[in-house]
């Protein structure tokens, strides 16, 4: 069984306590009857996950240094304007972690929760915007196009990154360690990768690392 996009949103709203009356009754009934739905609600209610999702959705682009960093900021602005969950920068995660004094053991738990968070986020977004990683472009002339929602940003966390929806034959990012630079990971869905792969159309990733070190 799979949950529809609308159902996912409803369950998220239920977890946030935003539903009332009939809608709430309906969502609660669904959560009671469906293990899958219940799992979503429980995951959304996890303190770390809920906080992270909320923060992610409010993510705004920061100032950029240099051309590459300006592009990174542009990407985030576009996502923010479209109401799409942004990306999590390693530096910001790191700063929050140090500010809250999280221990290494708690980090391990956080890693697992973040994986689930990324999973839910990607699930919702994949229903909202079908990825169009493919663009039939000639090898010489390239149409200038606005950024599409092809690749899905994947949660990055300091020194430990895991993809929420790792395809069996895709590229899996196991760990990124770039202490002084902001990192964003974009997942390219299957079909977006060219036929360079001999055995099919696997997913891939683009790891964007800001050139300028993050100012402390």
């Amino acid at each position: 069984m799979s949950l529809s996009h609308e159902t996912m949103l409803e369950l998220m709203a239920l977890a946030d306590g935003e539903l009332e009356g009939e809608a709430r009754d309906r969502a609660e009934k669904l959560a009671a009857e469906s293990e899958e739905a219940r799992g979503v609600v429980e995951a959304m209610r996890a303190p770390l996950l809920g906080a992270w999702l909320g923060e992610t959705l409010r993510e705004q682009a920061g100032a950029a240094d240099g051309v590459a960093d300006a592009v990174m900021a542009k990407i985030e602005r576009a996502r923010a304007e479209a109401g799409i969950a942004g990306v999590v920068r390693l530096s910001e995660v790191r700063a929050r972690r140090s500010a809250s004094g999280v221990t290494r053991g708690q980090l391990a738990v956080l890693g697992g929760v973040l994986v689930l968070a990324a999973t839910i986020l990607l699930y919702v977004r994949s229903d909202r915007q079908p990825g169009d990683g493919s663009s039939p472009v000639a090898s010489v002339d390239v149409p200038t196009a606005a950024p599409s929602a092809g690749p899905r940003p994947v949660l990055s966390a300091a020194n430990a990154v895991a993809q929420g929806t790792p395809p069996a034959q895709g590229v899996e990012v196991d760990e990124i360690d770039s202490p002084a630079h902001g990192v964003t990971v974009f997942e390219i869905p299957a079909g977006g990768i060219a036929a360079a792969a001999s055995g099919g159309t696997p997913s891939s990733v683009v790891i964007m690392i800001e050139d300028e070190p993050v100012k402390p």
Partner: peptide
């Protein structure tokens, strides 16, 4: 710039590092 990156992949599957 990139202290460490670990990925798991199959043959002929490109990935990208940019920035």
């Amino acid at each position: 710039y990139l202290k460490g990156l670990q990925v798991t992949l199959s043959a002929n599957q490109p990935f990208y590092v940019g920035g």
